[in-house]
Amino acid sequence: MTKILLSLHVLAAIIAVGPVTVAASMFPPAVRRAAVAPPRGAGDGGGGGDADAGTVRLLHRICRVYAGLGIAVPVLGIATAAAMGVLTDAWLLISLVLTAAAAGLLVAFVLPRQEELLEQLADRQPVERAGTARLAMFTGLFNLLWATVTVLMVVRPGSTTGA
């Protein structure tokens, strides 16, 4: 049962967290492109503004949907840790704290700021570079936390498995 839980935990992390980290990282530059692109029919024959705004909406939707699916990662991780008897190991407790911090950043700063920027684009308001830079900073912290958790999952300080 432990191998099944561990496999599901790893798959959930790859399938749920991976898309959020990538889409969230792509979001700030996509907003900057959409903010400067002329809307469809603006005389340039393009329509790049509409396409860029669509990309921004899609990236936000990916972040929202996969963040919800990402709840499976710590749930399966805790079940796996319980099955392995490592629930009180320091590396696991630190990983849980970092996971909670990453989730908190995503819910409190990344997703709401993405929504604000989407509203600014929809209302054709100017998008300040400082706003996208702050979002990029929070996204970078989110990604750094997940990278740290991943390293802890692989290295498992104090592990007796020799891995």
Rank of each mutant, 00 (worst) to 15 (best):
F109V: 07
G45H: 14
A101H: 10
P38I: 01
L117V: 04
A101T: 12
L111K: 08
T99A: 14
A83R: 13
R32A: 12
I78Y: 15
G77H: 05
D44I: 02
I78E: 08
A130K: 13
V56W: 05
E128P: 00
G54V: 08
H60I: 03
R33K: 03
G77S: 07
A37F: 02
G49L: 02
P112T: 15
G48Q: 11
L96W: 13
D52P: 03
M84D: 11
G45E: 06
P74I: 01
S95M: 06
V75Q: 06
P126W: 01
D44H: 05
G48H: 10
A130W: 04
P38Q: 02
A83E: 15
E119C: 05
L106F: 12
A82R: 14
Q125S: 06
L98E: 00
G47T: 07
V31F: 00
A82Q: 14
L111C: 11
V110H: 06
A90K: 09
T88F: 14
T80Y: 11
Y66W: 10
P74S: 07
R40L: 04
A83N: 13
L76E: 01
R32W: 01
T88A: 14
H60D: 12
G104N: 10
D50T: 09
V75K: 11
I78T: 15
Q120D: 12
V56S: 08
G85S: 14
V31C: 00
W91D: 10
T99M: 15
L87F: 06
V36T: 10
D50L: 11
S95Y: 02
G48F: 04
A82P: 04
G41L: 04
A102Q: 06
E119Q: 14
T55C: 13
R57P: 02
V31M: 01
A34I: 01
I94A: 09
P39N: 01
V75Y: 08
A82I: 15
A81E: 11
A72R: 00
A34P: 00
M84N: 08
A102M: 13
E116W: 00
R57D: 12
I62T: 12
C63L: 03
A35D: 00
V97D: 12
R57I: 06
G49A: 06
L105H: 12
A35F: 00
Q125G: 01
C63S: 13
A67R: 05
V65T: 12
D44R: 05
M84Q: 11
A102H: 11
I94K: 01
G48D: 11
R113L: 15
A34C: 00
V86L: 10
P126D: 12
V73F: 03
G47P: 04
I62M: 10
A42N: 02
G68T: 05
V86H: 13
I71A: 13
I78Q: 10
G43N: 02
G104T: 08
I94P: 00
A102R: 03
G48P: 03
T88R: 13
L59R: 09
L96M: 15
V110K: 04
P38Y: 00
Y66Q: 02
D89K: 15
H60R: 14
G47N: 05
I62P: 09
P112F: 14
V86D: 08
